[in-house]
Design a protein around this nucleic acid. Structure first.
Length: 104
DNA sequence: GTTGTGACGGGTC
DNA sequence: CGACCCGCCACAA
């Protein structure tokens, strides 16, 4: 089981209306390869099942996403999140409110 | 087999 | 504050 597999599984555990961060994911899989999480999401081998838009940076800010260049695509992700009940302000999410901590 | 780099985070300067 | 560096794992050239 590679870290990537764990990341996918954990990410799928995130309920609708909540988000997680690269840090938490990396932590929960027992690794500090935060970059791995980003890479895994970027490669996103299981796109339809891996809600990468539910993953944000530790500050609650949206990461790079966008696929080709971060910019407009991010706004679409934000809309998706808002549709799920997550409030996004200028690309920033209140982790205190919508952050789903696996450790809980 | 080796090297580089990436959707990041945290600590230091 | 902002810039810089290091760490970590996977994957492509």
């Amino acid at each position: 089981m590679s870290l990537a597999e764990k990341v996918y599984l954990k990410l799928r555990e995130v309920p609708r209306g909540k988000v997680t961060t690269y840090k938490w994911l990396a932590e929960v899989v027992g690794s500090k390869g935060y970059r791995l999480v980003g890479q895994i999401l970027k490669r996103n081998p299981d796109a339809p099942r891996t809600p990468c838009h539910r993953v944000v940076s530790s500050s609650g800010k949206i990461g790079g996403f966008g696929g080709e260049r971060s910019g407009k695509k991010i706004e679409e992700k934000i809309r998706m999140l808002e549709q799920e009940g997550v409030e996004v302000k200028k690309g920033v999410i209140d982790l205190e409110q919508y952050g789903f901590d696996f450790k809980e």
